[in-house]
Amino acid sequence: MSASSPTVPETDPVASGRPFGAVDVTWLALLGLTLLTWIVGDDAALGLGRSALLLMGLATLKAVLIAAVFMELARRGRMLLLGLGAYLVVLWLVLWLILARG
């Protein structure tokens, strides 16, 4: 590794030795968002367009969280995270636009 390589940041669990980190908090957030997804999906009054917008939006948010924290792209591949995030947002909007026609 070159001399110019960045050092492990203080927030890195390897350096800090903390028992809990971003991975654990993200897991709890993902479970909470899944519960919210179920509640929104069970609300028949929303209609197809709104439910598609909200449900696919929640899916996109959860996928980006997984990419950023679980896949470590926030620290080790920010350009890839940007590209993947943009792709998922486009997918969300495309699915919403198609479903809203129904």
Partner: peptide, 12 residues
């Protein structure tokens, strides 16, 4: 699965 789950089971 995060996309498949709402798309197949919930949206509607």
């Amino acid at each position: 699965w995060l996309f498949l789950f709402p798309l197949v089971y919930l949206v509607g």
